[in-house]
Computed example of a mutant assay.
Amino acid sequence: MTQHLLRGRDEKEVLWFQRRDTLRAAAAWLAMGGLPAAIAQQRSNIVELSGDALLNGNRLVPGQTIQTGDQIQTGPGSRLVFALGNASFLVRQNTRMTVERGSTLRAVSMLRILTGAVASVWNKGGSRSIITPTLTAGIRGTGVYTEIPPGEDRTYFCNCYGTVDLDAGGTKAVSRSDYHQSFWAEAPAGATPVIRPAGYLNHTDEELELLAGLINQRTYWQVMGRKGTPDGKGTMGY
């Protein structure tokens, strides 16, 4: 089990992947052929829904399909896992977000997060980004965790593996990570947002591994067969 630090979240929320119903749902999804089969058979792309969520203002129920252009809102104590395009998503409780449409109905061009937290894994593809009130992250093939703490004018962003282009109000950086490189993108006292180093918070390796498996991908540490130190610096400790 990954060593992890919690800030504003409880242990049960981060250890959702250990639940038997979650494991059964993920196994069933893969046994039925994953996302390509779901598209071909016109089945739902929702892997798991726990608690209450809204899709475009209406209650979301298992069996529905999430498409690009949709607005999603999760309620207290809820959780949503789904796959779309060539990416997979874990949406934590109390999150509001929009999945923006790309060149086709199933191509995700942008994930716009207004509140809450989302873990996501992306296969390689065209231009895509994650946008929050204080950060724009240009996504390549990678796994990331994004959180906007309630009542705070900043974004926590972890490039769990891969390469990400970061822009906070014109302050730019390129993150190349093997193992969890983390940042705060914050606007102190209403000033222009800046990017600062952060620790490794509120997510686990196992969450990213489950999401990667849903789209037939492996995390960088799975490929390498070892892990680094969870310190937010992004290295394997070479």
Rank of each mutant, 00 (worst) to 15 (best):
L114N: 09
V99M: 11
T98G: 03
K172I: 14
H180D: 13
R128W: 01
T132N: 03
D165Y: 07
C158Y: 06
L80C: 09
K172V: 14
P149Q: 02
R176D: 12
T155F: 01
N159K: 05
T134C: 09
Y179E: 03
L80P: 01
E152H: 10
V164L: 08
F82Y: 08
K124F: 09
I113W: 02
V164F: 01
T155S: 13
K124S: 14
R154Y: 12
S182H: 08
Q93R: 11
L84F: 01
L105Y: 08
V121D: 07
R96S: 10
T134S: 09
S177G: 05
S120E: 10
V174I: 14
T142F: 08
G151H: 06
V121R: 11
H180M: 11
I113E: 03
P133I: 02
F157E: 01
L90E: 13
G126E: 14
G102L: 02
F82L: 04
L84T: 00
Q181C: 06
S177Q: 08
R154S: 11
W122G: 00
I113G: 03
R140P: 02
I131H: 11
F183M: 12
S120P: 00
D167S: 04
I131F: 09
T163K: 14
F183I: 12
E147W: 12
G85A: 11
T132P: 02
G141M: 02
R128M: 04
C160V: 15
H180C: 13
Y145G: 04
V108L: 14
S175T: 05
